[in-house]
Design a protein around this nucleic acid. Sequence first.
RNA 1: GCGGUCGUGGUGAAGUUGGUUAACACACUAGAUUGUGGCUCUAGCAUUCGCGAGUUCGAGUCUCGUCGAUCGCCCCA
Length: 425
Amino acid sequence: MASYQTPRGTQDILPSDSRKWLEVEELIRSVCYYYGYDEIRTPVFEDTKVFKRENDSSDMVNKEMYTFSINNEDSLTLRPEGTAGVIRSFVQHKMYGIMEMPAKLYYMGEMFRYERPQKGRYRQFNQFGIENIGVKSPLVDAEVIALGYSILKALGLSQIKVVLNTLGDDESRANYRAKLKEHFAPCLDELCADCKRRYEQNPLRLLDCKVDKDHPSMMSAPKMEDSLNEESKAYFNEVLKALDALEIPYEIDDRLVRGLDYYTHTVFEVVSTHPESGSQATVFAGGRYDGLVEYFGGPQMSGVGFAMGMERLMILAEAEGIALGQREGIDVYVMGLGNVGTVPLEIATACRANGFVSEFNITPRGLKAQFKSVDRKQAKFAVIVGETELEQHMCNVKHIASQKQVSCDIDDVVDTIELLMKEGE
RNA sequence: GCGGUCGUGGUGAAGUUGGUUAACACACUAGAUUGUGGCUCUAGCAUUCGCGAGUUCGAGUCUCGUCGAUCGCCCCA
């Protein structure tokens, strides 16, 4: 083991993997393009206040942030999520005044959370996410889910499931929260420590407790549905109708509440049903937020978005056996025998200039070893430069598939390759 | 933050109740084939078992610590 290694919860993405990442990233950007989303790039760190908002009960904000301050300047924090920075930027640059609403933005980049690492959960990880800001419509909610869903489909993922719920508007949620507290108050002592904490901080989260899920009070707990006002109910129904129209299968889970405190109305989670995804099965998740833009000092505007865990996406693609980032063979491998100086490099350079992916032999070694490189790199052509031929300014060009070899002037290598290609067809 | 499992070469891994030479396979390098590969054969390839300390005549094998990975909880993408 090397004495230096990546810090806990971080990882190097090596060339064989970075090719996979690149392919997935390109696919995502392409889907965004078709949906009319443009990229926004915000800083990796922000003023701590951007993330740490009043009344926020989530662990992410309270216990998991990398926060630092240098020279007694204002406290800064490595972004633990993407939405806050995007909304801050939206307001700072008054996007609501300079572009047509809704603003359709996407981001892709690293996030940081101080947590105990696990498969699919890292301290530095990558998220792709979108934010649709400025128009509150069930159609937009459905479209946002559709965008994420179509990325997974385009990738070839099949074992996934869309789960959604509604938290209703402020009035409905306040109403529900009160009902829940009233319901659980009598039996609070029987519930686990986490539940007691949730009771105080975020009663909605009581519902997805795994310890007490069979407690009688859970079964008889009031349903969100019954606390929704007409408007919230109608809104959610429209979202479902739109999803039906798009033929996106979904499940409604009335216990889905999500961790971030800013969500209102529609919340959703897309999870993997693949056995290998373990406890970190959520691929992307998000929801609508009504108060965020205003919180950051903008107009009263609603938004909706989601974040997708890139590492999790890669893990699932791998688990489902999707081939990603395949490297194709190169076109030309130039070998050199004896003292041939810069000639192989010159030939490779000329080939590259003519559109052939080319490499050349660098260290002196036998033909056998060089042909092994040809095989490994799956080169279509081998160019052999030897001292003897070099005296006549000549070299050999070999078409690997047909084994056909011709000799030609060093300046005619490109023409010779093109000729052999035509013959090969 | 809590609990469990694991950590041997470039890779996959064997290593019996602690016994001194760390198996096997793949990959890699060289040669047989002194300028034409993918097959075959031969040879080479971990002074060392994540790191540190301890127990012992002796530790990859036991103990403790530490770092990392992993599983579950918490949380969440």
